[in-house]
Design a protein around this nucleic acid. Sequence first.
DNA 1: TATTGACATGGTACCGATACCATGGTTTAA
DNA 2: TTAAACCATGGTATCGGTACCATGTCAATA
Lengths: 335, 335
Amino acid sequence: MTTIRDVAKRAGVAPITVSRVLNNSGYVSDDTRARVMVAAVELNYVPNMLARSFRSSRTETIALVLTDITNPFWTTVARGAEDAASAGDYTVLFCNTDEQELKQTKYISMLVRRRIDGVLLVPARSSIDAVQTLQQHDIAVVVLDRRVPGAQVDIVRSDSIQAARALTEHLIANGHRRIGMLGGPQGLSVAEERIEGYGQALRAAALPLEAGLIVRGGFSVDSGADMTLALLDQPEPPTALLASNNFMAVGALNALRARGLGVPDDMSVVCFDDLPTSHTITPFFTVMAQQAYDLGRVAADRLMARLDADTELRPEEIVLPTELIQRQSVRRVES
Amino acid sequence: MTTIRDVAKRAGVAPITVSRVLNNSGYVSDDTRARVMVAAVELNYVPNMLARSFRSSRTETIALVLTDITNPFWTTVARGAEDAASAGDYTVLFCNTDEQELKQTKYISMLVRRRIDGVLLVPARSSIDAVQTLQQHDIAVVVLDRRVPGAQVDIVRSDSIQAARALTEHLIANGHRRIGMLGGPQGLSVAEERIEGYGQALRAAALPLEAGLIVRGGFSVDSGADMTLALLDQPEPPTALLASNNFMAVGALNALRARGLGVPDDMSVVCFDDLPTSHTITPFFTVMAQQAYDLGRVAADRLMARLDADTELRPEEIVLPTELIQRQSVRRVES
DNA sequence: TATTGACATGGTACCGATACCATGGTTTAA
DNA sequence: TTAAACCATGGTATCGGTACCATGTCAATA
């Protein structure tokens, strides 16, 4: 394997000069630069990033720690982050936590060992530990999608309260009075906020907030189905459901179908997070779409800004808008 | 930042002994091991993988170079690869080529600079260059999904010819005589093989192979729509379509819908690669499903076997079975 | 008893780049 | 004219681990 020294010898300069040429740092005359370039090409020189990173302690790598890459919402976020990082000459490492704190801890410690430059983190729980561990090791962090109480950290997210409120109001405007809420895990900020927004809309419409209409579970198809069945088994079931994400909504649909109920005829269903039109054959759900691609892109840009900044940046909160897309899963009822 | 030397000093041993403890290599007495462990914990020692990788020239990292992570087929492959790699203590780097050779070249060169241990490669074109570049730099390669003519390399793939033949036979068995083939890009082995299997089925059934019924394009929704329109504009359009992947099939559906044609009433449609049930609300397409998760898992396992092997392994071809899943997109016609 | 090999530990060099400092020459400003 | 600032290049140490080789103990074996 040819090294910087081989190139230096061939070009008749010192290794450090080759380094300067390759990194565009310091002063190098055009003549020397050309000679070095030629020598490098002739020797088919490939820089050893390990050596460079080791010495300079910059890996030019960031990590995206998220919950589940198989959810198209996160896939899109990942794509946005990768495109932005790639444009800034950073490489992205993806880590799936499956919403499990243990996996998250394992990944975080791996990232610290690797001396990664920065992390885009979707915290598995809203615990502050992961953020602190990273910050203690001087690794830049941008949190996505969720708040981390008490942490001094950048956050890029959508306005969940407002979005949930708008979705709920849409149902109310269509005459629904008993709306079931399929909530996310306890203690997760997005989950709490969506429930909060739901509550705000009910209060604003002077509708009763029934605890029995709010159920909680994970962001998965199975959980969505379970929660739906629980709501259906109530003495007075809701006429509409608000699912905290796309997978839950699909689960709800499955559960309703199993009970012989149709959407929207027997039950209206709305949810967060659209499914890409390339996947769903017939776009069907009325959804509150988050700008998934932008979420990833903006977060990556912020992280890189932080990495390239000369001075420490003040933590910032960036809130992206959401968009209500009306389709066929809501029926107007008489109220 | 505490180093191995700090730990050694505290434990009263030589740095190399600490290294032995941390890597479980060589002989270390239980007593010494315990002392070192304690010292490491007390000092909150975090190994520097950069230094280790630099010296040992093993990064414990593999890359998955694929065409488009937003296609759920590839997402699933990625998940399979990551789970397997993770179990073997390897980290995975994902790279999207979008089927563009330029991007692929850029990524490959980045991976070489990073001295990655191995690459799972879905070649953007069936060119041998990428494989050779990697092998020249002593980076292990396993090719996924596609053949690379002339390359001495492991391949993990499904049997496309057989699968396409079976799909076509399914259409023929349902009375279809004029079957349109939405083919993939020229020169891509999977694309060619699917067309080949289609042809075999026609020949076996003594049906004419009309060149006009075979169109080619990319593995995208838009391309699927374009190809479908081209077939519809023929003097005697087909009664069934075979799409070379899931996205093309969605595109076909869109195009048919735009022309006011229904599936399966006016046109039967089958395709390769299922869409996950968590995404599609109503599984609809009759598909030839590949074992996407296993494809990734098996490939990663093979790559790791290659990396851990003492001797050079002979290139192997691993072919995974596919499964025909019948749903609602095929209509029986009178023949 | 002598030899062998498993066990346990350490010394030193080195992986390939860059940080830091030093050295001249040339140009510009006071 | 002289100091300061810029330009161009090099020497050397060093980042934090591991490879390689050396050394010594002790039990098993011939």
